[in-house]
Protein backbone atom coordinates (compact mmCIF):
# COMPACT_ATOMS: atom_id res chain seq x y z
CA UNK A 1 0.00 0.00 0.00
CA UNK A 2 2.81 2.37 0.91
CA UNK A 3 4.23 1.81 -2.52
CA UNK A 4 0.92 2.27 -4.30
CA UNK A 5 0.08 5.68 -2.87
CA UNK A 6 3.11 7.51 -4.31
CA UNK A 7 2.47 5.87 -7.67
CA UNK A 8 -1.17 6.93 -7.62
CA UNK A 9 -0.21 10.44 -6.56
CA UNK A 10 2.35 10.53 -9.29
CA UNK A 11 -0.19 9.44 -11.84
CA UNK A 12 -2.69 12.02 -10.62
CA UNK A 13 -0.10 14.78 -10.77
CA UNK A 14 1.00 13.71 -14.22
CA UNK A 15 -2.62 13.51 -15.35
CA UNK A 16 -3.37 16.97 -14.01
CA UNK A 17 -0.22 18.35 -15.62
CA UNK A 18 -1.10 16.72 -18.92
CA UNK A 19 -4.65 18.04 -18.62
CA UNK A 20 -3.29 21.51 -17.94
CA UNK A 21 -1.10 21.30 -21.00
CA UNK A 22 -3.68 19.97 -23.44
CA UNK A 23 -6.37 22.43 -22.33
CA UNK A 24 -3.96 25.35 -22.77
CA UNK A 25 -5.21 28.03 -25.18
CA UNK A 26 -3.24 28.38 -28.41
CA UNK A 27 -0.45 30.96 -28.25
CA UNK A 28 -0.52 34.14 -30.32
CA UNK A 29 0.92 33.87 -33.80
CA UNK A 30 2.79 37.18 -33.77
CA UNK A 31 3.60 37.22 -37.47
CA UNK A 32 0.02 36.45 -38.57
CA UNK A 33 -0.85 38.21 -41.80
CA UNK A 34 2.68 39.53 -42.34
CA UNK A 35 3.13 40.63 -45.94
CA UNK A 36 -0.60 40.68 -46.69
CA UNK A 37 -2.25 43.94 -47.75
CA UNK A 38 -5.64 44.59 -46.14
CA UNK A 39 -8.54 45.28 -48.51
CA UNK A 40 -11.54 46.53 -46.49
CA UNK A 41 -13.88 46.36 -49.49
CA UNK A 42 -13.16 42.68 -49.96
CA UNK A 43 -13.52 42.40 -46.20
CA UNK A 44 -17.15 43.57 -46.50
CA UNK A 45 -17.89 40.40 -48.48
CA UNK A 46 -16.10 38.21 -45.93
CA UNK A 47 -18.18 39.95 -43.29
CA UNK A 48 -21.40 39.21 -45.22
CA UNK A 49 -20.52 35.58 -45.92
CA UNK A 50 -19.51 35.11 -42.29
CA UNK A 51 -22.93 36.34 -41.17
CA UNK A 52 -21.42 38.49 -38.41
CA UNK A 53 -24.41 40.84 -38.17
CA UNK A 54 -26.89 38.00 -37.71
CA UNK A 55 -25.54 37.46 -34.19
CA UNK A 56 -23.64 40.62 -33.25
CA UNK A 57 -26.08 43.35 -34.30
CA UNK A 58 -28.20 44.61 -31.41
CA UNK A 59 -31.47 42.67 -31.23
CA UNK A 60 -34.33 44.19 -33.28
CA UNK A 61 -32.00 46.50 -35.21
CA UNK A 62 -32.69 46.85 -38.92
CA UNK A 63 -31.02 48.23 -42.03
CA UNK A 64 -27.94 50.37 -41.46
CA UNK A 65 -28.25 50.05 -37.67
CA UNK A 66 -27.27 46.42 -38.06
CA UNK A 67 -23.70 47.54 -38.73
CA UNK A 68 -23.48 48.75 -35.13
CA UNK A 69 -22.18 45.50 -33.65
CA UNK A 70 -23.23 46.18 -30.07
CA UNK A 71 -24.14 42.52 -29.43
CA UNK A 72 -26.64 41.42 -26.83
CA UNK A 73 -28.57 38.73 -28.69
CA UNK A 74 -29.22 35.80 -26.30
CA UNK A 75 -28.47 32.20 -27.32
CA UNK A 76 -30.25 29.78 -25.00
CA UNK A 77 -28.66 26.31 -24.85
CA UNK A 78 -28.48 23.23 -22.63
CA UNK A 79 -25.46 24.79 -20.93
CA UNK A 80 -26.91 28.21 -20.17
CA UNK A 81 -27.61 31.39 -22.08
CA UNK A 82 -24.81 33.00 -24.07
CA UNK A 83 -24.90 36.62 -25.20
CA UNK A 84 -23.24 37.84 -28.36
CA UNK A 85 -20.58 40.37 -27.29
CA UNK A 86 -19.88 43.87 -28.58
CA UNK A 87 -17.43 43.51 -31.50
CA UNK A 88 -17.65 47.10 -32.72
CA UNK A 89 -14.36 49.07 -32.96
CA UNK A 90 -14.98 50.63 -29.53
CA UNK A 91 -11.62 50.40 -27.69
CA UNK A 92 -13.21 49.75 -24.28
CA UNK A 93 -16.24 47.59 -24.95
CA UNK A 94 -15.47 46.25 -28.41
CA UNK A 95 -12.40 45.12 -30.31
CA UNK A 96 -10.96 48.56 -31.06
CA UNK A 97 -7.67 47.94 -29.25
CA UNK A 98 -7.06 44.45 -30.64
CA UNK A 99 -4.09 43.66 -32.83
CA UNK A 100 -4.40 41.59 -36.00
CA UNK A 101 -2.78 38.50 -34.39
CA UNK A 102 -5.21 38.81 -31.46
CA UNK A 103 -8.15 39.12 -33.82
CA UNK A 104 -6.97 36.16 -35.90
CA UNK A 105 -6.51 33.97 -32.83
CA UNK A 106 -9.98 34.92 -31.56
CA UNK A 107 -11.71 34.18 -34.85
CA UNK A 108 -9.83 31.09 -36.01
CA UNK A 109 -8.76 29.50 -32.70
CA UNK A 110 -11.46 30.69 -30.28
CA UNK A 111 -9.09 32.35 -27.82
CA UNK A 112 -9.55 35.87 -26.41
CA UNK A 113 -6.72 38.44 -26.30
CA UNK A 114 -6.51 37.69 -22.55
CA UNK A 115 -5.80 34.07 -23.41
CA UNK A 116 -9.16 32.57 -22.43
CA UNK A 117 -11.11 30.03 -24.45
CA UNK A 118 -14.32 31.26 -26.04
CA UNK A 119 -17.50 29.21 -25.85
CA UNK A 120 -18.18 27.47 -29.15
CA UNK A 121 -21.42 29.44 -29.54
CA UNK A 122 -18.89 31.55 -31.46
CA UNK A 123 -18.35 29.37 -34.56
CA UNK A 124 -14.54 29.32 -34.52
CA UNK A 125 -14.52 25.59 -35.29
CA UNK A 126 -15.82 26.70 -38.70
CA UNK A 127 -13.82 29.95 -38.94
CA UNK A 128 -10.59 27.99 -38.37
CA UNK A 129 -10.66 27.36 -42.13
CA UNK A 130 -10.48 31.07 -43.00
CA UNK A 131 -7.69 32.05 -45.34
CA UNK A 132 -5.32 34.60 -43.72
CA UNK A 133 -6.07 37.09 -46.51
CA UNK A 134 -9.79 36.90 -45.66
CA UNK A 135 -9.04 37.44 -41.96
CA UNK A 136 -6.84 40.44 -42.76
CA UNK A 137 -9.54 41.92 -45.00
CA UNK A 138 -12.27 41.27 -42.46
CA UNK A 139 -10.25 42.92 -39.70
CA UNK A 140 -9.69 45.98 -41.89
CA UNK A 141 -13.39 46.21 -42.80
CA UNK A 142 -14.60 45.87 -39.22
CA UNK A 143 -12.48 48.83 -38.17
CA UNK A 144 -14.53 51.01 -40.53
CA UNK A 145 -17.81 50.18 -38.74
CA UNK A 146 -19.53 52.47 -36.22
CA UNK A 147 -18.58 52.36 -32.55
CA UNK A 148 -21.02 50.98 -29.96
CA UNK A 149 -20.33 52.43 -26.54
CA UNK A 150 -22.10 49.69 -24.56
CA UNK A 151 -20.63 46.88 -22.47
CA UNK A 152 -21.12 43.26 -23.52
CA UNK A 153 -23.65 41.29 -21.49
CA UNK A 154 -22.20 38.50 -19.34
CA UNK A 155 -23.02 34.89 -20.26
CA UNK A 156 -25.42 33.14 -17.90
CA UNK A 157 -23.68 29.80 -17.60
CA UNK A 158 -23.58 27.68 -14.44
CA UNK A 159 -21.00 25.28 -12.99
CA UNK A 160 -19.12 23.42 -14.45
CA UNK A 161 -19.54 25.08 -17.83
CA UNK A 162 -18.42 28.42 -16.39
CA UNK A 163 -14.85 27.08 -16.05
CA UNK A 164 -13.32 28.30 -19.29
CA UNK A 165 -10.33 26.00 -19.00
CA UNK A 166 -12.74 23.09 -19.48
CA UNK A 167 -13.34 24.38 -23.00
CA UNK A 168 -9.76 23.35 -23.73
CA UNK A 169 -10.86 19.76 -23.21
CA UNK A 170 -13.89 20.41 -25.39
CA UNK A 171 -11.59 21.66 -28.11
CA UNK A 172 -9.40 18.55 -27.82
CA UNK A 173 -12.50 16.44 -28.45
CA UNK A 174 -14.41 18.47 -31.00
CA UNK A 175 -12.11 20.99 -32.70
CA UNK A 176 -11.55 18.84 -35.76
CA UNK A 177 -9.19 20.57 -38.16
CA UNK A 178 -10.11 18.51 -41.21
CA UNK A 179 -12.81 19.35 -43.68
CA UNK A 180 -15.83 17.04 -43.42
CA UNK A 181 -16.03 16.58 -47.18
CA UNK A 182 -12.52 15.19 -47.55
CA UNK A 183 -12.29 15.36 -51.33
CA UNK A 184 -13.53 18.35 -53.27
CA UNK A 185 -14.06 17.17 -56.84
CA UNK A 186 -13.33 20.51 -58.50
CA UNK A 187 -12.47 24.15 -57.81
CA UNK A 188 -16.14 25.16 -57.48
CA UNK A 189 -16.89 22.47 -54.88
CA UNK A 190 -13.69 23.44 -53.08
CA UNK A 191 -14.82 27.07 -52.91
CA UNK A 192 -18.25 25.89 -51.77
CA UNK A 193 -16.63 23.79 -49.06
CA UNK A 194 -14.67 26.81 -47.85
CA UNK A 195 -17.92 28.79 -47.64
CA UNK A 196 -20.22 26.11 -46.20
CA UNK A 197 -17.85 24.42 -43.75
CA UNK A 198 -15.86 27.55 -42.98
CA UNK A 199 -16.97 31.12 -43.47
CA UNK A 200 -20.75 30.71 -43.64
CA UNK A 201 -20.69 28.05 -40.87
CA UNK A 202 -23.84 26.29 -42.13
CA UNK A 203 -23.12 23.23 -39.99
CA UNK A 204 -23.62 25.18 -36.78
CA UNK A 205 -27.39 25.00 -37.26
CA UNK A 206 -27.93 22.27 -39.87
CA UNK A 207 -25.81 19.57 -38.15
CA UNK A 208 -27.00 17.86 -34.95
CA UNK A 209 -24.89 18.16 -31.77
CA UNK A 210 -23.95 15.55 -29.19
CA UNK A 211 -24.61 15.85 -25.45
CA UNK A 212 -21.54 18.05 -25.03
CA UNK A 213 -22.47 20.40 -27.84
CA UNK A 214 -19.97 19.02 -30.35
CA UNK A 215 -21.12 18.71 -33.96
CA UNK A 216 -21.86 15.12 -35.02
CA UNK A 217 -19.74 15.03 -38.14
CA UNK A 218 -21.19 11.65 -39.18
CA UNK A 219 -24.53 13.40 -39.53
CA UNK A 220 -23.12 16.46 -41.31
CA UNK A 221 -25.85 18.85 -42.51
CA UNK A 222 -28.60 16.27 -42.00
CA UNK A 223 -30.75 18.61 -39.92
CA UNK A 224 -31.07 19.23 -36.20
CA UNK A 225 -33.54 20.26 -33.54
CA UNK A 226 -33.95 24.02 -33.35
CA UNK A 227 -32.13 25.24 -30.21
CA UNK A 228 -35.10 27.53 -29.54
CA UNK A 229 -37.00 24.32 -28.76
CA UNK A 230 -39.53 24.89 -31.51
CA UNK A 231 -39.38 22.76 -34.64
CA UNK A 232 -36.43 21.42 -36.60
CA UNK A 233 -33.77 22.93 -38.79
CA UNK A 234 -33.93 20.98 -42.06
CA UNK A 235 -31.33 18.65 -43.50
CA UNK A 236 -29.70 20.06 -46.64
CA UNK A 237 -27.81 17.10 -48.10
CA UNK A 238 -29.12 15.66 -51.40
CA UNK A 239 -30.79 12.91 -49.35
CA UNK A 240 -32.84 15.52 -47.50
CA UNK A 241 -33.41 18.17 -50.12
CA UNK A 242 -34.28 17.44 -53.72
CA UNK A 243 -33.71 20.95 -55.00
CA UNK A 244 -31.77 21.47 -58.22
CA UNK A 245 -28.61 23.56 -58.25
CA UNK A 246 -30.62 26.39 -59.87
CA UNK A 247 -33.24 26.10 -57.10
CA UNK A 248 -30.53 26.45 -54.47
CA UNK A 249 -28.93 29.45 -56.16
CA UNK A 250 -32.32 31.18 -56.48
CA UNK A 251 -33.00 30.50 -52.80
CA UNK A 252 -29.67 32.06 -51.80
CA UNK A 253 -30.37 35.06 -54.04
CA UNK A 254 -34.03 35.93 -53.46
CA UNK A 255 -35.05 33.57 -50.66
CA UNK A 256 -37.62 31.81 -52.84
CA UNK A 257 -38.11 28.07 -52.43
CA UNK A 258 -39.03 26.04 -55.54
CA UNK A 259 -42.67 26.50 -54.44
CA UNK A 260 -42.12 30.28 -54.27
CA UNK A 261 -42.57 30.40 -50.58
CA UNK A 262 -40.01 32.64 -48.86
CA UNK A 263 -37.22 31.86 -46.44
CA UNK A 264 -38.22 32.57 -42.86
CA UNK A 265 -36.67 33.15 -39.45
CA UNK A 266 -32.90 33.06 -39.19
CA UNK A 267 -32.57 31.74 -42.73
CA UNK A 268 -34.07 34.98 -44.07
CA UNK A 269 -31.08 36.78 -42.53
CA UNK A 270 -28.69 34.24 -43.99
CA UNK A 271 -30.22 34.85 -47.42
CA UNK A 272 -29.82 38.61 -47.08
CA UNK A 273 -26.12 37.97 -46.35
CA UNK A 274 -25.61 35.47 -49.17
CA UNK A 275 -27.41 37.76 -51.62
CA UNK A 276 -24.52 40.23 -51.24
CA UNK A 277 -21.95 37.72 -52.49
CA UNK A 278 -20.96 37.28 -56.12
CA UNK A 279 -23.22 34.80 -57.94
CA UNK A 280 -20.24 32.46 -58.37
CA UNK A 281 -20.12 32.03 -54.58
CA UNK A 282 -23.80 31.14 -54.37
CA UNK A 283 -23.25 28.66 -57.20
CA UNK A 284 -20.27 27.22 -55.33
CA UNK A 285 -22.35 26.68 -52.18
CA UNK A 286 -24.99 24.91 -54.26
CA UNK A 287 -22.32 22.78 -55.98
CA UNK A 288 -20.90 21.77 -52.60
CA UNK A 289 -24.33 20.77 -51.25
CA UNK A 290 -25.01 18.70 -54.37
CA UNK A 291 -21.60 17.02 -53.92
CA UNK A 292 -22.42 15.76 -50.43
CA UNK A 293 -23.06 12.03 -50.03
CA UNK A 294 -26.61 10.89 -50.73
CA UNK A 295 -26.86 12.62 -54.11
Amino acid sequence: MRRVIPVLLGCATLGAALGWVITRPDPLEQSYGAGLTPDPEAGALVFAAGGCVSCHAAPESEGEEMLVLAGGLPFPSDFGTFHAPNISPDPTHGIGDWTLPEFARAVTRGVSPEGQHYYPAFPYTAYQHLAPQDVVNLFAYMQTLPIADVPSLPHEVGFPFNIRRGLGAWKVMFFNEDFVLANASDVEVERGRYLVEGLAHCGECHTPRNALGGLEQDAWLTGAPNPSGKGRIPGITPAHLEWSKADLVEYFTSGFTPEYDSAGGEMAEVVSNLAQLPESDREAIAAYLKALPGG
Binding site: K230, G231, E250, T253, S254, G255, F256, S262, A263, G264, G265, A268, V271, S272, A275
Partner: peptide, 23 residues
Protein backbone atom coordinates in the same frame (compact mmCIF):
# COMPACT_ATOMS: atom_id res chain seq x y z
CA UNK B 1 -35.60 40.36 -64.30
CA UNK B 2 -33.04 38.41 -62.25
CA UNK B 3 -32.08 41.54 -60.35
CA UNK B 4 -35.74 42.30 -59.65
CA UNK B 5 -36.30 38.87 -58.06
CA UNK B 6 -34.17 39.89 -55.11
CA UNK B 7 -36.43 42.80 -54.16
CA UNK B 8 -39.60 40.73 -54.58
CA UNK B 9 -38.12 37.93 -52.46
CA UNK B 10 -37.02 40.38 -49.82
CA UNK B 11 -40.51 41.88 -49.58
CA UNK B 12 -42.11 38.43 -49.23
CA UNK B 13 -39.56 37.31 -46.66
CA UNK B 14 -39.65 40.47 -44.55
CA UNK B 15 -43.42 40.35 -44.21
CA UNK B 16 -43.50 36.60 -43.53
CA UNK B 17 -40.83 36.99 -40.90
CA UNK B 18 -42.80 39.54 -38.91
CA UNK B 19 -46.39 38.65 -39.63
CA UNK B 20 -46.59 34.94 -40.43
CA UNK B 21 -46.63 32.33 -37.70
CA UNK B 22 -44.95 28.91 -37.75
CA UNK B 23 -46.31 26.03 -39.86
Amino acid sequence: LKAGMGAVGKACGACHDDYRGPK
